[in-house]
């Protein structure tokens, strides 16, 4: 098998394997899953895996643009927790005033989107206008949002009122034609992201800036504006992910969204986007997100390895998936 693979690599050249690397990894994982547990392909399990991938997935699509433009955002996990907390608090207050009803949810949803957008704008402005490294800015805001949610929740958990939770619940658990809303939302965002990345000036500008900022500037691309836009877009998508997240358990605490930023970044890189910027692939990110979710799912469906080793398996698969597509790359 190793021989056959080497041959295909040689014949197909570097581009082919770079493209199919993540898909091969995904297919291998699916085959392992099927072999280990007959319930793996059941409707319930597939729905579970896809729906739970939606939060990280939606965020990772935004992250693809940020990374493609040569940036990074470490704050998304904390930001999601903070925005979720803010939305829950607001909805609880409004329930007291307006009673249980749709308007409360609409305001909550709008607030989550606006709060995400503003949070992204703050990151973006600090990075582009004040000129601080993205790593440092978002490391700072990561700590700030994490503390703010802990403070808002008084160290405990912010929970949506019971009746409101029942009303809002279908946004995560409901759907049309048996496909649940988070899956639909993830699919729509992914398709839009792919179109924007490939077929719009914005997508091409992101790649140009990430590849060489100076050249991009001389080509009269509004570098700062495009950069800023990637962070704002990511913030907005974090808000959108929160809209899908809150109805799931109806709560937010200091441990909400923990390590989401790293999962999102890992998904983007597994998908073939370059960490240093210049090249981005939204569909690859989607595959990356699915790979990460499937590893966890498969490990839960079997006693194959000690739970103590879950992290090691995940780490190994992440590295393998990237090795698979970089090994033959001659462009670096």
């Amino acid at each position: 098998m190793a021989h056959a693979e080497t041959k295909t690599r040689r014949r197909g050249g570097s581009i082919d394997l770079k493209v199919i690397g993540p898909i091969v990894a995904l297919i291998v994982l699916v085959l392992i899953g099927v072999a280990l547990n007959p319930n793996f392909l059941s409707y319930a399990n597939i729905t579970n895996v896809l729906a739970r991938s939606a939060f990280i997935g939606i965020i990772a699509v935004g992250m693809t643009f940020v990374i493609t433009a040569g940036g990074l955002d470490l704050s998304v996990g904390s930001m999601a927790a903070f925005v979720a907390g803010l939305a829950i608090l607001t909805m609880n207050v409004l329930t007291d005033v307006w009673g249980v009803g749709l308007p409360v949810i609409l305001v909550g949803v709008a607030l989550a989107l606006v709060a995400g957008l503003i949070a992204g704008l703050i990151n973006g402005l600090l990075i582009t206008r004040v000129g601080i490294e993205a790593f440092i800015v978002t490391l700072g805001t990561m700590g700030i949002y994490r503390s703010l949610i802990t403070w808002l929740a008084d160290g405990g958990t912010l929970s949506l009122g019971f009746e409101m939770r029942e009303l809002y619940r279908p946004v995560y658990y409901g759907g049309i034609a048996g496909i649940s809303w988070p899956i639909i939302a993830f699919a729509v965002i992914a398709i839009l992201g792919e179109v924007v990345m490939r077929h719009t000036a914005f997508g091409r500008h992101c790649a140009a800036i990430g590849s060489n900022e100076k050249v991009a500037r001389y080509s009269s691309i509004a570098v700062l504006k495009v950069r800023l836009a990637t962070y704002v877009l990511l913030g907005l998508l974090v808000g959108f992910a929160v809209v899908m997240y809150v109805p799931r358990l109806g709560s937010a605490s200091a441990s909400t969204g923990l390590l989401w930023e790293l999962e999102a970044i890992a998904a983007v890189i597994i998908g073939g986007t370059l960490l240093k910027g210049g090249f981005g692939r939204v569909w690859g990110t989607v595959v990356g997100v699915l790979i990460l979710s499937l590893i966890g799912n498969i490990l839960n469906l079997t006693d194959f390895v000690s739970p103590y080793l879950n992290g090691a398996i995940q780490g190994a698969v992440i590295i393998l998936a990237v090795v698979l597509q970089r090994k033959t790359g001659t462009d670096r």
Binding site: N39, N45, N48, T157, R248, L249, S255, N297, L301
Partner: peptide, 23 residues
Amino acid sequence: VAMDHGNWNRDTAFTLMQDWLSR
């Protein structure tokens, strides 16, 4: 029949329980 770490976390526990229910 199964024992695993939910890490005292709601989201992890939710995912874990979903998978156990499938299994």
